[in-house]
Amino acid sequence: MRLVRAEVLKIARRRGLMIWTLILTIGAVLVSEIILVALHAANPDHHGPAGGETNFTNYVSVLILLGTVASIMIGATAGSQDVSNGVFRDLVVTGRKRATLFNVRIPGVLLVFLPMMLIGFALALGGSLAFAASLPHPSASVVGGYGAYALAFTGINVILAVGLAAFVSSRIVVGVLIAWNVIVAPLLTQINSLGSARKALDTVAAHSFAPSRFEHQQVTMSAAGAIAVLLIWAVAFSSAGRWWTNRRDA
């Protein structure tokens, strides 16, 4: 636990990273709500209420989109900062196993990141209820489904970033994972000839938790299957990162 707390300290004291993570999670939802509330107040006939189920899904979509960028940034930093700051060797000479030094990075960064995602999600839900007016409130299944979707999509990216950052610099990790999430994975999902092989994609697995399907989403899978796919991705990337951390010169 002391090592996990140390990881939290290392991340949480990065002022710039924390500000950006707050902006991309809590800030993004708040700004979305403020805009919709302001539009509705200015012209209620043309702009409907800022709450309700549809707006809830919109808020969460913004949270997932920008939260994914934040998750990659924060994960890449957590995975690379000991080496990039030259402190990894000082941790190694304490006699701690390198695998342990790697393993604590994931819970450490999740403890910093997930509360921000949860607050962002709570704001989205709160706004959708508070500003619903005559619109229907989001149902429990929609709230649960989108909660799982947001957690899965951003959480898996944190873990992938931590694992990848054991090999390359944080900038490269950010570039690679954003390209994967924005370009490569959506393109692969669109290729019908790949059939059920697309279920192996982490993005498809995470999307499958969302109750209402996106138009471009053409692959469906069970929750158990999605969890299994996400676990395989998480284990593969964290194992690779641990292996390289064990092997590299400190």
Partner: peptide, 12 residues
């Protein structure tokens, strides 16, 4: 804080 980080990797 830097010492806290390394102390966490050592004994209590």
């Amino acid at each position: 804080e830097n010492l806290v980080i390394v102390a966490a990797a050592r004994d209590r």
